[in-house]
C-alpha cells in the first residue's frame, strides 16, 4: 500500500466497522485504486476467518446452569458470614458497655450494690421464671 493510500487505511477500518460513513472522496478513491479496494475486500475475508472462532466455541454445549446457582450460593454464604460478624460485633459492644459500667460503678465505690444486684438477680430470676411459666400455663389453659 502506497503512502498516499495509507491515509485511507484507518478510514476503511472505521467504515468496515460502521463507525464512519463512506464519503464520496473515499468512494472515488476506491474506484480508482485497486490496492485500497482489495484492502477493503481483505477486511471482509478476515471477517469470515474470524467467524470460525464462533463456530468453534459452541457455547450451547457448555452452558453450565449450576454456575448461576453457585454464584447465588456464594453470595448467600458471604451475606450469612457478614450477618454473623455483625451479630458478634453487637454482642461484644453490649458486653463491653455492661462491663465498663460495672467497673465504673465499682471504681466509684458502689461495688457492694453491684454484689447485691447480682445476688438479687441470681435468686429472683429463677423465681421470676416460675412466674412466667405459671402465666403461660394459665394462658394456655393447662
Amino acid at each position: 500500500m502506497s503512502e498516499c493510500c495509507k491515509k485511507y487505511e484507518a478510514d476503511l477500518i472505521d467504515i468496515y466497522y460502521g463507525e464512519l460513513e463512506m464519503s464520496d472522496e473515499i468512494k472515488t478513491h476506491l474506484e480508482e485504486c485497486d490496492l485500497c479496494a482489495s484492502y477493503l475486500k481483505g477486511l471482509e475475508e478476515v471477517k469470515s476467518d474470524l467467524s470460525l472462532l464462533d463456530s468453534d466455541i459452541n457455547i450451547d454445549n457448555i452452558v453450565d446452569e449450576t454456575l448461576i446457582r453457585k454464584a447465588f450460593a456464594a453470595v448467600d454464604k458471604k451475606t450469612e458470614k457478614k450477618n454473623r460478624f455483625f451479630d458478634l460485633a453487637i454482642f461484644l459492644s453490649i458486653a463491653a458497655v455492661i462491663i465498663a459500667a460495672a467497673l465504673m460503678l465499682a471504681y466509684k465505690g458502689y461495688g457492694i450494690y453491684l454484689i447485691y444486684f447480682q445476688a438479687a438477680v441470681f435468686f429472683l430470676a429463677p423465681i421470676g421464671l416460675l412466674g412466667v411459666i405459671k402465666m403461660r400455663q394459665f394462658k394456655e389453659g393447662v
Partner: peptide, 26 residues
C-alpha cells in the same frame, strides 16, 4: 461466557470468571 472464552481462550478460566461476574452482579 462467550466473551470471556474468546478473551482467555481457556474454558476453565472463562467458567471461573463467569461465576465471579455473576457473583459480583448479584
Amino acid at each position: 461466557f462467550g466473551y470471556l472464552l474468546k478473551l482467555s481462550m481457556n474454558e476453565d478460566t472463562a467458567r471461573d470468571l463467569t461465576q465471579e461476574t455473576m457473583t459480583k452482579a448479584i
